[in-house]
Design a protein around this nucleic acid. Sequence first.
DNA 1: AAGTCTCCCTGAGTGC
DNA 2: TGCACTCAGGGAGACT
Length: 271
Amino acid sequence: MPELPEVETVVRDLRPHLLGRRLLAMHWGPRPLRRSKPATARTERVDSRVNAIQRRGKWILVFCDQGQALRIHLGMTGQLMVVPATEPRPDHLHWWADLDNNCQWRLRDVRRFGSVEWFVRGQEALTELEQKLGPEPLALPVGYLPKVAGQSSRSLKAILLDQTIVAGVGNIYADEVLFQAGLHPLRPAATLSIEDWERLRRVLRDVLQRAIRARGSTIRDYIGGSGLQGQFQNQLQVYGRWEKPCPQCQTPIARLRVVGRTSYYCPQCQK
DNA sequence: AAGTCTCCCTGAGTGC
DNA sequence: TGCACTCAGGGAGACT
């Protein structure tokens, strides 16, 4: 499941293949992705050069030199890759773009939770996101979290998953961060001390940075933009480790459902 | 009005 | 072998 470290890895992998390349045309297949625009099967003439590729939260933004932009979300199972155009089309291919070097940039997405949106006025793709997303967790100002969540009765798990508070954290890294910080997923945000919030801020940054270095976590479907799997799944301390011993205290890892998501945690280490 | 729930989607896994 | 069922969870919108 692509979260911030996985999306960042995809963006870094794609840059050398796409920067400076001309996008000739792009194609949406007959089975619609979620909330894609255009929504129906069609081909869009583009003929514009790729200027920049960036990540914002779990979103990918690709800017072209005539002011347009592509906005892509990988959903749960999205895979982006650049391959020779002659390569056979895989199953579940729902969008692709023709490049000027006989290569094709492709989105494969088994569950179609992803989206690809084409903006003629590219800046709108970013300003829309900025209106609804919180800051990047790798660069959170000291004091930001207690300011926006310090009075909230919500659980810490809900806070971390809320993209309007902080953008890019999903279920896996929320659990890992809370374990590393020694905080229970159901702990009400309003009960944290300033020291707790500062520890959480640092752990959030450190866990995500380590995961980026490992090219993210491949649990089931995720692969990077060069087709490589991630390696951080081997460093996960609690996620997916139900009833296995806690790496700190050997207590069996517990799980429960918080805001519709499965949470893994150590009942001994996390208070 | 803040916070939680439901829905979408498919393949893998499980039990019978 | 086949079938029914559950689970995985991102984000949007419905609901309480």
